[in-house]
């Protein structure tokens, strides 16, 4: 039963995100709080329900909505609770409104973060607040690698991390900086959350492996440029959202089968025999 439950990567993601929230509440405070989590979750579920009703979906996909809400809680900071509610609404409704050939283009939580930061004066992200103690990075990596194992198509996580590391190391080498500088930049919880939970969202990334590789490199280069040239702090989300409209193009250049959440074994089980 438990195995069957864990086969859906979303369940594992939900578990990991909830664990991270718990860690934030009891051990390492990186700024998330329960009220924001509750507000974001409620807003996400309500939006998901309303949109499902409007487009006539047979059931409400509560897991994706909750994952988006928890990601927002962990990453986005606001000076009032409505910031979290609005971010969740924007994130979920974009899934239904911004679609090309039946596929939504933006990762919901990254889109919610980007819209709130650009459109209001009340939201920000605090990448430094995760702390860079090595144990925490390791913990995150371990938990997240579990998700990596459980989900499919998450090769993009590795593509992204390798590209990101490569760029940071390359920059340090060019500047003549000690290795401790890129290491300090890498030991950052929000980078791991971004790589493991956001850019890896199988519903929005390119369908073909080569497409995912190209996309990961493009996002890493853009994020690097935004961070160091523009000195814009939420560089990761800005890069991902800014480049997401290219995905349909990448899918056209490298065609492959569309991702579906249900596990093949499960699908088989549902077929009449």
């Amino acid at each position: 039963m438990a195995l069957r439950w864990a086969r859906d990567a979303r369940h594992v993601q939900l578990l990991v995100l909830t664990l991270l929230l718990a860690v934030n509440l009891v051990a390492v405070d990186f700024g998330a709080n329960l009220a924001a989590a509750a507000v974001a979750s409620a807003a996400a579920l309500l939006t998901q329900a309303a949109c499902s009703q409007l487009v006539g979906l047979p059931r409400i996909e509560w897991r994706s909505a909750l994952i988006a809400a928890l990601s927002l809680t962990l990453l986005l900071r606001g000076d009032a609770l409505w910031v979290h509610a609005l971010a969740a609404m924007v994130a979920i409704s974009a899934k239904f409104l911004v679609r090309i050939r039946g596929k939504h283009i933006f990762n919901p939580s990254a889109f919610g973060i980007a819209v709130l930061i650009f459109a209001t004066d009340h939201a920000w992200v605090s990448p430094g607040q995760w702390g860079n103690s090595l144990w925490f990075a390791t913990l995150l990596a371990l938990l997240a690698s579990w998700v990596l194992y459980a989900s499919r198509r998450t090769d993009i996580t590795l593509f992204y991390l390798v590209a990101h590391c490569g760029l940071l190391l390359g920059r340090a080498w060019w500047l003549g900086d000690p290795i401790s500088i890129p290491l300090n930049q890498l030991q950052n919880g929000s980078l791991l959350l971004f790589a493991f939970f956001m850019i890896s969202d199988p519903r929005t990334i390119p369908d073909a492996r080569l497409g995912r590789l190209v996309f990961a490199i493009l996002v890493a280069v853009a994020a690097h440029w935004i961070a160091f040239h523009w000195q814009f702090r939420p560089a990761l989300y800005a890069a991902l959202i800014g480049l997401s409209p290219l995905i349909p193009l990448i899918d056209r250049m490298f065609p492959a089968a569309r991702f579906e959440w249900r596990h093949p074994a499960e699908q088989e089980g549902t077929q009449p025999c």
């Binding site: 939201a123 430094g128 401790s180 300090n184």
Partner: peptide, 17 residues
């Protein structure tokens, strides 16, 4: 010191009052 703070301090203003 250089071991624990290898990079310059990158600052950010927030809306937190």
């Amino acid at each position: 010191d250089s071991e624990h703070f290898p990079e310059d301090l990158m600052m950010q203003e927030t809306a937190n009052r």
